[in-house]
């Protein structure tokens, strides 16, 4: 799963620590999620999205692992 956290954070001019304080997690957690090393659970994903004033799907992008599924299903 990819995310746009770094871009959105830059737009808001927030540091990782700022975002961590806003969503009530450690800076380590923000770093891990932002770098795509850790996929957050839904409540945290929603908190991150809400902190940016966005919907979850505007922040997190699901990458389908199966190339044959690209383009969606009919």
């Amino acid at each position: 799963m990819k995310n746009r956290m770094r871009v959105l954070r830059a737009e808001m001019d927030w540091t990782q620590a700022d975002l961590a304080t806003r969503i009530g997690v450690s800076r380590q957690a923000v770093i891990a999620v932002e770098n795509g090393k850790y996929d957050p659970a839904l409540p945290l994903a929603f908190r991150i999205a809400r902190a940016f004033g966005k919907n979850v799907e505007d922040v997190f992008i699901w990458e389908d692992e199966d190339p044959s599924q690209k383009g969606g299903t009919k």
């Binding site: 009530g24 997690v25 450690s26 380590q28 957690a29 850790y38 957050p40 659970a41």
Partner: peptide
């Protein structure tokens, strides 16, 4: 009291 990431670690 830890967040979910810290709990994972």
């Amino acid at each position: 009291k830890l967040d979910e990431f810290q709990k994972r670690v």
